[in-house]
């Protein structure tokens, strides 16, 4: 669409700008202020320059949780994106079954995140949970609270359970936008199912897939509640991701300075990654 150049449009954006500025810029400034000081109480504080940053950047806890975070987000994308596409391809196109499918698939997305954790906490327990019980009956020694591997698998399966529907729904709506003419042409050419997917469906899904990758990457990168409820970050620190390390520092130990420095480093990582994804997205839109 050709947009008119009109700077008066700023008046329409102003309420949003003020509201978000109040909730984003003021806190951000505060974080920057905290990050350069050692704060004992509001009146006793010492300027320490970049010391906290140095400490945080060289802190093995940060390195470990950052590494875990990237592995986790990578796994999430590798499993959920192909699975989501596959599910979207199998969904019925219209009729009552289609709406029913949509609603059932949306259910996990509407459950509060700590309840998701609770559901899997119960489901995976060996004494009262169906999953843990049946695995142990089948002769597999499974305990997500003490075995690192089991904890990881459980957290990942929980995330797949929770969020694959989002990817599937996105792809589904992308597929719905393909006109029937394309499929008819493919039938005339006797194109194989793979060729239809590769040359018709995948290109049409590109823009929604980018949104899906963006949302899934960002949301998995800030995951906090579900592993917090399910494993509490354990066993040991095996499932402690960035948000949890930060929350422990900020609210648990009330280390204002280091927590603020950590927040800013975390935010910079997010800022760079979301900028890269967003630029890729807008360029894909432009070249469509």
């Amino acid at each position: 669409m050709n947009k008119v150049h009109n700077n008066k449009a700023w008046w329409l954006v102003l309420p949003v700008f003020l509201l978000v500025a109040f909730s984003a810029i003021v806190p951000m400034m505060t974080v920057v202020n905290y990050s350069v000081q050692d704060i004992f109480d509001p009146s006793t504080r010492i300027f320490v320059g970049f010391d906290w940053y140095k400490q945080v950047l060289q802190d093995p806890r940060l390195h470990d949780s950052l590494l875990r975070q990237f592995i986790y987000s990578g796994c999430v994308l590798l499993i959920e994106i192909p699975l989501g596409i596959a599910i979207a391809l199998t969904m019925p196109t219209k009729g009552r079954w289609a709406s029913l499918c949509l609603i059932v698939m949306a259910i996990p997305l509407l459950i509060p995140w700590n309840v998701v954790g609770t559901i899997w906490q119960i489901f995976g327990r060996a004494d009262i949970g169906l999953l843990g019980w049946s695995l142990n009956e089948a002769g597999i020694d499974y305990n997500y609270a003490s075995n690192t591997m089991d904890a990881w698998v459980t957290v990942l399966v929980m995330d797949v359970w929770h969020w694959t529907s989002l990817v599937a729904l996105l792809c589904y709506s992308g597929l719905r936008a393909i006109p029937d003419v394309y499929y008819q042409a493919a039938r005339i050419d006797r194109a194989s199912a793979w060729a239809v997917f590769r040359h018709i469906q995948l290109p049409k899904m590109k823009s929604v897939l980018l949104i899906a990758v963006l949302l899934r990457f960002m949301d998995s990168f800030m995951i906090y509640t579900e592993p917090f409820v399910l494993t509490g970050g354990g066993p040991g620190n095996a499932t402690t991701f960035l948000s949890q390390t930060l929350t422990k520092m900020a609210i648990g130990q009330f280390d204002l300075g280091p927590a603020a420095a950590f927040s800013l480093v975390y935010f910079l990582i997010i800022l760079l990654l979301s900028w890269l994804f967003y630029t890729a997205m807008t360029h894909a839109d432009k070249n469509r």
């Binding site: 984003a24 951000m28 974080v31 930060l246 603020a260 927040s263 975390y266 997010i270 967003y278």
Partner: peptide, 18 residues
């Protein structure tokens, strides 16, 4: 959009104070 992407944990402390 960056605010949608920012982890709530980052804003926890200043929100509490604010």
């Amino acid at each position: 959009l960056t605010n949608r992407m920012a982890p709530p944990a980052v804003f926890l402390l200043p929100f509490f104070q604010l």
